[in-house]
Design a binder for these strands. Sequence first.
DNA 1: TTGACAATACCGTCCAGACGGTACAGTAAG
DNA 2: CTTACTGTACCGTCTGGACGGTATTGTCAA
Lengths: 181, 181
Amino acid sequence: MSGHRPSSRDKILAAASELADIVGPGNLSLDAVAQRAGVSKGGLLYNFPTKAKLMQALVQDYLKSFEDALAAEAAKRGDTTKNSLTAYIELSARECEQKQPSAAGVLAALAEDPDFLNPVRDFKRQLLDRLKSETTDTAKLMVAFLVIEGLRSMKLFDMDILHDDERNMALTYLLAEAAST
Amino acid sequence: MSGHRPSSRDKILAAASELADIVGPGNLSLDAVAQRAGVSKGGLLYNFPTKAKLMQALVQDYLKSFEDALAAEAAKRGDTTKNSLTAYIELSARECEQKQPSAAGVLAALAEDPDFLNPVRDFKRQLLDRLKSETTDTAKLMVAFLVIEGLRSMKLFDMDILHDDERNMALTYLLAEAAST
DNA sequence: TTGACAATACCGTCCAGACGGTACAGTAAG
DNA sequence: CTTACTGTACCGTCTGGACGGTATTGTCAA
């Protein structure tokens, strides 16, 4: 079900994200995506019959890879459901450090039509509910969740406002609070 | 210096923001903006000689109105510089409740070219530095700042994920921490 | 006072190019 | 024969922006 060799589909998705990052979220054209992916335009439209479908796939792809990373992080430590908040925090912290161009694809989808973000909304709400069922102090959960959301939005907008120590301060504070629950 | 009657310029800016919210950030056209503002396209181009200039103005406008609101909030309570974090938190909290369509204009600017957000980055960094100089506990400041950033990004993306009580929990937590400093 | 001119604040039209998408013939692999 | 494309040609639409015009108001010398 997963683990293909780099298919055309994957190359197109990657090319679209990279391009969105280069030309700006609202200036993504099918011709340019096809060219960057090393695929003809006909080939692109064979895989994604319409631009909207491409955008949906971009969002789905982003969500899927995040989901996988979260599951991997939870598996890496003990599967005790109790510390999945800690897993979420640490995963997000690590993601802040590195590049993740796939986020640019999400912005492209947003630019095209904000409704493409509906799956993201659903995903986040589900995640929050899961976290909620596993923690006792809801106020602290909300703070942690929102801090990460803030960090994530900064990354999305390429706003490298925070110094490393500033970010770490917030993160260690969160981790300490999460551990004491 | 301020307090004009609704000039063409202002009508255009407002129309652009509203339209961005309706048609999606990446689908903002000059023709549509002109029409909605009740101005001819030539008239629009007179006020904003290029689309890029419009976008810049949209961002500037957004920043300015936020700055004004923050100053007004600080003035409303005592001008003691100590509690400007509290002012920031409460202002942001109130803004979460209400509609503020001007944010859609910022997304339109982002869609066109992410560099248009540079002024936002500068503004936020300045704000953070000011807050930093007025508080003792930097870790708690960072948490508060990032929580608000998270709230703000959700509003921007129209992600009404949080229930009112969830949001209030985070906010009252923040206010309590800010007061105890 | 008046006539000449200029600046301001627009209007309405036009155009070259880019875009999403279609159509279709061909092809190489399995 | 089907799948997964390639390549080319094309269509209708939309877009940013250039351009020429116009009404109003102001300025200022004679």
